[in-house]
């Protein structure tokens, strides 16, 4: 426990830096993957090509990408933008497939019912399809969250500060607690953000809490238009 006694401020600081790199990347991944995933679902041919490219993107190893991206964008290697861009690339590659699948899984009869009622295409998307797709999208976001937080640690190998720095420093000095602390903090961070996403999901999809008593009235109201024409 010796290291922890004096090392915890540094560990905490690195955890914050780690978070500051992960959050923008996760948000950007969602913002980019959503429209593209929807497009992939609507236009199957474009979709097939997009999803294959996404698979390819994910196969690019992280270290070389961390070197290529700054060279391409003309930014310093150890700038936070580099890491955020790289994380977003992977996050997008992971998420776009989930988004496409999510919209693909929306029951077509529900969609047609909504159109039949008289919803405009925009309303059909925002008020029917998107809410129904949210659960699957969110499970994709959870994967992106865990993957992103884990990936940030690799940056330590090219001098980008994060919890991964605890690994390389602990490695050099042979301080196991330092490495363990880094690992625990990484897992904790991932679990925390995962919980946030789950809670966000519950807020965004109140109808999935159907089995709870007292909720029935609200749920019936929300799903009525879909239920009636099934």
């Amino acid at each position: 426990m010796i290291w922890l006694v004096t090392g915890w401020p540094q560990a905490l600081q690195l955890a914050l830096t780690h978070l500051a790199l992960s959050l923008p990347a996760i948000i950007l991944s969602v913002l980019i993957a959503l429209p593209l995933g929807v497009l992939a679902n609507r236009r199957p041919q474009f979709g097939g090509a997009l999803l294959s490219s996404a698979g390819l993107l994910y196969a690019i190893p992280a270290l070389p990408l961390l070197i290529i991206v700054p060279a391409l964008l003309g930014i310093p290697l150890r700038s936070p933008v580099t890491m955020v861009v790289v994380l977003t690339v992977y996050g997008f590659a992971l998420l776009v497939r989930s988004v496409a699948d999510a919209f693909g899984a929306v029951d077509q009869t529900v969609r047609r019912a909504a159109v039949a009622i008289g919803h405009s295409p925009r309303a059909v998307f925002w008020q029917v399809e998107l809410p129904l797709a949210v659960p699957v999208i969110l499970s994709g976001v959870r994967v992106v969250v865990v993957s992103t937080i884990g990936l940030v640690t690799i940056g330590a190998l090219v001098g980008i500060s994060s919890l991964g720095t605890l690994f390389t420093d602990g490695f050099q000095r042979g301080i196991v607690e330092e490495v363990l602390t880094g690992m625990v903090l990484t897992v904790v961070l991932a679990m925390l953000l995962d919980t946030v996403v789950v809670i966000a999901g519950r807020i965004l999809t109140p109808w999935t809490r159907a089995s709870r008593p007292g909720r029935e009235k609200a749920d019936r109201h929300l799903t009525a238009s879909a239920e009636v024409h099934r």
Partner: peptide, 19 residues
């Protein structure tokens, strides 16, 4: 499985390497 997914492989490798 979810928790195991969150374990950073580099960190695990470092600890196992030291041992």
């Amino acid at each position: 499985a979810g928790a195991a997914r969150a374990i950073p492989t580099l960190g695990l490798l470092t600890i196992l390497g030291l041992a």
